[in-house]
Design a protein around this nucleic acid. Sequence first.
DNA 1: AGCAATGTGGCACTGAGTGTCAAGTGTCCC
DNA 2: GGGACACTTGACACTCAGTGCCACATTGCT
Lengths: 197, 197
Amino acid sequence: MNVEPGLRDKKKVRVHHALVEAAIRLFEQRGFDQVTVDEIAAAADVSRRTFFRYFPTKEAVVFARRDEQLAAFREAIADKPEGFDAIRGALLALGTDYVEQRRRILVEQRLIRTAPSLMMHDLEVDRAFESVMVEHLLARTKRTVGDQRRAKILAAAIVGAVRVCIEEWAERDGEPDLRKLGADALDLLEPLAPRPR
Amino acid sequence: MNVEPGLRDKKKVRVHHALVEAAIRLFEQRGFDQVTVDEIAAAADVSRRTFFRYFPTKEAVVFARRDEQLAAFREAIADKPEGFDAIRGALLALGTDYVEQRRRILVEQRLIRTAPSLMMHDLEVDRAFESVMVEHLLARTKRTVGDQRRAKILAAAIVGAVRVCIEEWAERDGEPDLRKLGADALDLLEPLAPRPR
DNA sequence: AGCAATGTGGCACTGAGTGTCAAGTGTCCC
DNA sequence: GGGACACTTGACACTCAGTGCCACATTGCT
């Protein structure tokens, strides 16, 4: 099992990459609304129809990276014991990722802030993170309805706090220490977490 | 000053109302995606073009009420002294509103959960609430960057908690006491608020 | 009544997103 | 290596959201 890529899949990766690169470049140059899918497809040497086979919407192409991060986050907390600490760890790991890809992510963030439809998608990705956290917090024991509610509130607060940190980080061109920002914010929220018992 | 409505404005209100009613009714019957703007306009006896003079998007017609609530919320905290208590009071007042319009709002909530684009708009309205809270929390003294960050995190947490409460309330057909749910959630978050001194 | 302001309908247009089908290309098996 | 098969692509046509424009009707004001 686990056969190596094969020509077909390699091509798929190449096209996917070409579309993302072309799209980001064009968006950066002229703004999200001023670029049509036709132009992106042309710049990546595929047809318009093919673009929509790789991405469900024009917005989605901006969030390709984010989707990968979500998957990484999901995996990072999958095996760890449920609780606040696992989430903290996974988020800080994500923070490292952000810092490493700083330039790229700052471009994306700047882009996202210019187009309302991108901001909305951003929020939806946040909700996906939130869901993963809730699932993790309630993984083994579902407990009472009240516990579930508390877990959901905690997850929402964490996601909100992280968003605030990333916004501040991006606004200052990635200059402040994102990991410290995040760590402080999470410390602030730790009291909301259910007692470790 | 402050002249009474006049025929023109009365008509505007009537059309606005007709569009909302027609839209909600059709959406409820067949689902958001299965209804075109043409149909809504026809059902309200106006042209398609006129629909877009009243609402910027097909989604917006669902959130007419929400926009009014946001305005009411903004007004409710406008004169009160800055801080957590003002926000708590305004939110609980909003809760009363929700309970009073229970049937209506449950329909809207059910609708919103069926269409992704509506969920996104929902999140955006939440962000608007968040902004109003942040503005209120930082109204007089802007304080340090750290204080601003804390205020933003608090606002995000509050909005998230309120959303969780409303979701639970709607999922159970408006049976639980929304005001109590909200009050408990806010008590949980009160420690995050800056010290009153 | 008559003029200015404003709201409306109709029309044409752009652009996102989808269904369909024929042609191209990779994969696999003999 | 060659052919059958599965998958991918491009082209075309279509629906529908949203916008600009202009002629026409309605309202407000004097």
